[in-house]
């Protein structure tokens, strides 16, 4: 009975949602002089950044990114406090099965390559697709691979928290340095350089590298604390 009621409500909801969105059409320019044109214009003419999504995430909406990284930090803290247990339980992970030699050797070979790919992605965040969030998540998957392959692989929580705090502090300090020229928070104070070179875009590249370190440390810590949770 309840399921039929739910299906009825969802059918009505779906009908109106579909009506609303299919009226929009697919692939038409939405606004004449919208915020999109402003961002695209300023990205290439003023900031000299190739990737517009990066320039929006780090520069135009940089304050939101600071908030987002803070939300991730809070998620990791909440997870650690919810899964907290007494000291002697922590550290002995329940092992379902020992991984085979092929998996161990293969992950040992793949681990540096995955880390290198992640670092490449967040260093070239302002030139190619990708950036701090993507690179950080890829580095976290590398650590995840090692944690799954070797049951006694350890990640130091102190190192993770130091990396994370340092990256966050550098982010905020670079943002505050924008006030020097009488500008605003996250104002660019370095030379912009030439479009499509590695050292271009001023502070955007540095900030995205810091975001990459911070996200990598946070996600690795999150996975580590969930994986070491033993029932």
């Amino acid at each position: 009975m309840r399921k039929f009621l739910v299906i009825l409500i969802l059918a009505v909801l779906g009908f109106y949602l579909f009506e609303a969105f299919s009226g929009l059409g697919l692939g038409f320019p939405r606004f004449e002089h919208g915020v999109k044109d402003y961002y695209l214009d300023k990205t290439v003419s003023e900031l000299h950044v190739a990737n517009t999504v990066t320039s929006i995430v780090v520069s135009f909406r940089g304050f939101d990114t600071l908030g987002e990284v803070t939300v991730l930090f809070l998620a990791v803290s909440a997870l650690g406090s919810v899964l907290y247990k007494r000291r002697h339980d922590v550290g002995s992970r329940s092992i379902l099965f020992a991984s085979s030699g092929i998996v161990r050797s293969g992950s040992k070979l793949l681990f540096p390559a995955i880390i290198l790919l992640g670092v490449y992605i967040f260093i070239h965040g302002h030139l190619t697709p990708g950036g701090g969030f993507q690179g950080g998540a890829i580095i976290a998957t590398g650590f995840l691979l090692m944690l799954l392959a070797y049951e006694n692989f350890r990640v130091s929580h102190h190192v993770l928290s130091y990396v994370e705090s340092l990256a966050g502090i550098i982010f905020v300090v670079i943002g505050l340095l924008g006030f020097i020229d009488g500008g605003t928070f996250l104002q660019n104070f370095l030379p912009s350089g030439i479009l499509n070179e590695l050292f271009s875009g001023g502070v955007i590249g540095i900030i995205y590298v810091m975001v990459g370190f911070k996200v990598a440390a946070e996600l690795t810590g999150l996975i580590y604390s969930v994986l070491h949770e033993k029932d």
């Binding site: 969030f133 993507q134 998540a137 996975i223």
Partner: peptide, 20 residues
Amino acid sequence: DVALTEAAIGVALTTIIFLI
């Protein structure tokens, strides 16, 4: 950009955390 994020976070990390 979104495809890279979804590949790293949606496919790998979310699945693993559900499995754990």
